[in-house]
Amino acid sequence: MSCEEPTTSPTPENNITVVSSDGKEFLLDLKLTEQSETLARLISNFEYDRTDVKKDPVPLGNITSAQMQKIIEWLQHHRYYPKWEQNDIHYSTSFTFETWVEEYLNIPNNEMFELLNAANYLNIPRLFSTICRIMASRITGKSAEQIRTVLNIKTDVKNDVYTGIPIQEDSSSSEDGMSEISLSPSPPPI
């Protein structure tokens, strides 16, 4: 098995090894694992923060090596950030992001999907919340048609085989035949 090293090389005393689903090992600085509630709890439970405790590699069966690499990139960047705190429910969601984050999350939809699941599994709240905000920012202010493009949803609309004109196969996409502007959940009165 190969062993990937993050940018700053952890010493044996202050690191743990995690193993991705495809068998790749990653040395992780304990300081970085503080951002993942799943890893932090595991380290605390097994007392891996003690130098006299033997540390077994931690298998992460839900996370591929590519995802892990991406996650480590995030953890490294936020190494010295203050501890994440959940915003108040009345906090107005901000849709502005630092340039690094925008570039980091400028990835195809399928990679975004996998990264979000990995962030959810490892419980990295800052990353999880940022991806949710990015997702929300891509949806907000758009029409249903534009949202379908963003989310790459094509299933509800089919082209007519004879005319090539899009036909509504699932009434939900046109809200029971109502106009694009309409928000109402019920069909219009006849």
Binding site: I147, S173, L183
Partner: peptide
């Protein structure tokens, strides 16, 4: 949770 009411209503119209 991060969306406003209008966006949620629009999202309802995206797919079943």
């Amino acid at each position: 949770e991060k969306l406003d009411l209008f966006s949620i209503l629009k999202l309802r119209k995206v797919c079943y």
